[in-house]
């Protein structure tokens, strides 16, 4: 019951953030210098057409009226109409976002599996060669720009060796291998570094000594006792990674020509399609907020202490 209550509380708590997100995007696109209409129609549009198109798009009304119309529209799934494609933004997002989800999930799986394994190996062989290699791999991962990994992989494995498809999504899951590795390495580095440091901390605590005294081997103690407790902060970081994965997806999708939300946003910028830009950024941000919410709920289940605090 208390778990349900704390989950409900967190869900309610994220509503003001959601409204704030829409408001911030709205204000940036409307109040900051630069006129959406002029950017759609070009600098030389005559006043009459500008007024007509403004009225058509509802841009002649004050911003708070537009905001109200937009946010009530969002509740019914209406995100406006794309200027470039003349189709509802929600429909476009619906066709593009499965690619981003597949890419992000694949990258997250790579990041978490490689990151946790790498962190555990480093922690168990602290200061030995395995530790140095593992941490070198992680530090390189958090330092290398996503576009560099993507281009090197594309150049070496797809162009030179022809092992994997060079771009597009026509080869099923194989198309996602290189983009996912390019996108996930960065997160793998963060996860590995954190897993190592929390695991080392947990391994120094009394109950691990108890488990060892009861005859568990070191690896048994890690797998059955330490890892579970070390995972709590790691899950927090994984949730934070959702946001950076979506940022990185913009770059990865551009390099590998994957038709996802990131490409849609870049496309919207290049074709000055404000409703589409607004919709895709808000949608991506909602995904991040949802991800954080799920992580919050997850670790209140994993760690009873957090559950009681709320």
């Amino acid at each position: 019951m208390s778990t349900l209550k704390s989950i409900a509380k967190r869900v309610l708590g994220s509503i003001p953030v959601l409204i704030g997100v829409v408001l911030v995007i709205f204000l940036i696109l409307r109040i900051l210098p630069g006129n959406a209409i002029l950017s759609i129609m070009g600098e030389h549009a005559n006043e009459e057409t500008v007024a007509m198109v403004s009225a058509e798009l509802g841009l002649d009304k004050p911003w708070y009226v537009q905001f109200w119309v937009y946010i009530t529209g969002l509740l019914t799934g209406d995100m406006g109409t794309s200027i470039k494609y003349h189709r509802p933004v929600a429909e476009l997002i619906g066709t593009y976002f499965p690619v981003t989800i597949k890419l992000s999930v694949a990258a997250a799986l790579f990041a978490w599996i490689v990151g946790i394994v790498c962190g555990v190996i480093s922690a168990m062989g602290k200061d030995k060669l395995a530790d140095r290699l593992g941490m070198g791999f992680s530090l390189l991962g958090v330092s290398v720009p996503v576009f560099m990994t993507a281009m090197v992989l594309q150049f070496a494995l797809a162009f030179k060796l022809k092992w994997l498809p060079i771009q597009g999504v026509n080869d099923g899951l194989l198309s996602y291998v290189l983009p996912a590795v390019a996108l996930g390495w960065n997160s793998a580095g963060s996860v590995a570094r954190l897993t190592r440091s929390t695991l080392l901390e947990v391994m120094a605590s009394d109950y691990i000594d108890t488990a060892r005294a009861k005859g568990r081997s070191v690896s048994g103690a890690v797998v059955f006792h330490a890892l579970r407790n070390a995972m709590v902060p790691v899950i927090t970081v994984m949730a934070i990674q959702i946001s950076s994965l979506l940022s990185g997806a913009v770059i990865t999708e551009t390099i590998f020509s994957l038709p996802g939300i990131g490409r849609l946003a870049v496309d919207a910028i290049n074709s000055r399609d404000v409703p589409l830009l607004q919709g895709s950024v808000i949608f991506a941000t909602v995904l991040v907020i949802l991800g954080n919410l799920i992580a919050d709920c997850l670790y209140s289940v994993l760690d009873p202490r957090i559950r009681k605090e709320v």
Partner: peptide, 18 residues
């Protein structure tokens, strides 16, 4: 609210307007 955005997307929107 600021931290909820994927930072690159927010930066893209700001750069688009500016």
């Amino acid at each position: 609210v600021m931290l909820a955005f994927p930072s690159l997307l927010l930066a893209m929107v700001i750069m688009y307007t500016l």
